[in-house]
C-alpha cells in the first residue's frame, strides 16, 4: 500500500482503490479450520496465546462459506481428498490455500502408502507451501504473512475477483 499512498496533512490519505481493498482484505483473513492430522495441533497452538494469529487479523471459521483461506494441515487420504475439493469449491472467491506440512505438500513420510494423496496440489491450487513435519507455529505465521503479500499484489478491480493475478 505504501507505494501508491500519499499522506496529506490534516488526516487525509490518498490511495488507489485497489490498495485500500487489498489492505482491508489482508487485515481480516479468516481461515477455515481444517486440521486433518498432526499439523492440526500446531495449527491450534498457532491460534493459542503464544503465536496468536489473531494479531494478523486471522481467526478461524468453522464453515467454508465464511472463510478466505484454507489451511490444509496434515495428511490427506483419497477418501478425504474429495471432501477437500468440495470444501474448496464452497469457499467464496477470492480464496487462498496454504499447504501446511510435508504430508500436504507431497505425501511426506507417507509417500509410499497406498491410501495417501501425494500432495494436495493434485486436487486444489496451492498458494503457499510450508515445509516441516510438523512446521512450527512461527512457520505458519510466516505463511500467513506470505498470503498477505500475495493479496497486496493483486489488481482487484481489473480482474473483478474472477481471475487471480499473480505477478
Amino acid at each position: 500500500m505504501k507505494e501508491n499512498t500519499t499522506i496529506i496533512e490534516q488526516g487525509v490519505i490518498v490511495s488507489t482503490i485497489d490498495g485500500v481493498l487489498n489492505w482491508m482484505r489482508k487485515s481480516s483473513i479468516w481461515y477455515l479450520l481444517f486440521g486433518t492430522a498432526c499439523c492440526a495441533i500446531e495449527l491450534m497452538q498457532a491460534g493459542g496465546p503464544r503465536t496468536d494469529l489473531d494479531r494478523f487479523g486471522a481467526v478461524f471459521r468453522a464453515t467454508p462459506r465464511q472463510s478466505d483461506l484454507m489451511i490444509v494441515a496434515g495428511t490427506v487420504t483419497y477418501k478425504m481428498a474429495e471432501r477437500i475439493r468440495l470444501l474448496y469449491h464452497q469457499m467464496a472467491e477470492p480464496k487462498y490455500v496454504i499447504s501446511m506440512g510435508s504430508c500436504a505438500n507431497c505425501g511426506g513420510l507417507f509417500q509410499r502408502s497406498y491410501s495417501v494423496l501425494k500432495g494436495i496440489d493434485k486436487v486444489v491450487p496451492v498458494d503457499v507451501y510450508i515445509a516441516g513435519c510438523p512446521p512450527r507455529t512461527e512457520a505458519l505465521a510466516e505463511g500467513i504473512l506470505k498470503i498477505q503479500k500475495i493479496m497486496m499484489r493483486e489488481k482487484w478491480l481489473k480482474t473483478r475477483g474472477t481471475k487471480r493475478n499473480f505477478i
Binding site: 474429495e82 509417500q111 494423496l117 501425494k118 486436487v123
Partner: peptide, 9 residues
C-alpha cells in the same frame, strides 16, 4: 489412479 487422482508423484 484413484478416481481422477494420480497415486504417484
Amino acid at each position: 489412479s484413484y478416481h481422477d487422482m494420480e497415486t504417484m508423484r
